[in-house]
Write a protein that binds this DNA or RNA. Structure first.
Lengths: 153, 153
DNA sequence: TGCTTTATAGAAAAATTTTCAGCAATGACT
DNA sequence: AGTCATTGCTGAAAATTTTTCTATAAAGCA
């Protein structure tokens, strides 16, 4: 499927606020309500729109501490990688985990309430996973930019 | 505001799918439709729910390349930091930018279509920002976990 | 040309959100 | 203890939105 200019605008709007009514969208896009409706349904069917989510303000629920953990495995066997990945997926503190190139194997984004909780996370959860070689953590000092909205090019 | 068990469940559901109807939510939570409605409105008023967004499948729109860039500034004056941050915010390829502790000053999550576009991003956009000391990039080999949903504890 | 598909519009139907009135429980204050 | 205000809930009604349906025009194609 190829996106035309209207689809791109529509996706941009929906990435900002997916609760806008089709009427609002229709006037922004100079289309009828039904046309907007059909376009959105198509984007959903094609899997271009993956899901609709509420974004929660993490600070407001006491999660003020963002940490990036870089992790090196002891060995790079398929078994070790798979095991590590399945364990990390289960950790609620880990919002993102990427297998990456470079000196370290994995980059994790971890969210906790404070340093104490982070220590607890490291000691009782992360480093109890087998075959971890070494870790290196960077603490977020400030969030400069953090968006879910992709610029459709 | 303190969240009770129902609020926490509600937030969990809404972070998975914010387009569920209040009727669906009311039956999952054993509440009336109006009670669900009022709770959601309160969470919005309090700013606990920040926004409602559509999540776009980046692969489907040709953005298959995720890169993490670590950046060191030449000097750490307030002026340099502020300038860098305001420039980086403007770059559409940058979805996340955190000022972090450790060897590097900033960690960026960059999304592009391919290596060529990444080279172009580095050469014509990122490294043209003044006062950058050095950069170090890690490419994503695979996405193990990547969620917007926070576990409400 | 004639046929099929695709995108659109407007109206009607179905479903959902939002408002409203009423009720019970809670806590503050006299 | 009694009164009052607040909070959260329910069910019904009103308002709005989504979804379906019918029809039409434009585009692609044999």
């Amino acid at each position: 499927m190829t996106l035309d200019a209207i689809d791109k605008k529509l996706l941009t709007f929906l990435q900002q606020d997916c609760k806008q009514t089709n009427k609002e969208l229709s006037s922004k896009l100079n289309l009828s309500v039904t046309a907007v409706y059909e376009r959105i349904k198509k984007l959903e069917r094609e899997g271009i729109i993956k899901q609709y989510v509420s974004v929660v303000n993490k600070e407001k629920i006491g999660l003020k501490f963002v940490v990036f953990c870089q992790i090196k495995l002891a060995q790079h066997t398929k078994e070790y990688l798979t095991k590590f990945e399945s364990e990390v997926k289960k950790l609620e503190e880990v919002l993102e985990c990427f297998h990456v190139s470079g000196e370290y194997d994995y980059l994790l984004k971890v969210i906790v309430g404070d340093m104490d909780q982070f220590r607890n996370f490291m000691v009782t959860k992360l480093t109890t996973i087998q075959h971890i070689g070494s870790t290196q953590s960077s603490f977020s000092i400030s969030e400069v930019k953090n968006t879910t909205a992709i610029n459709i090019r």
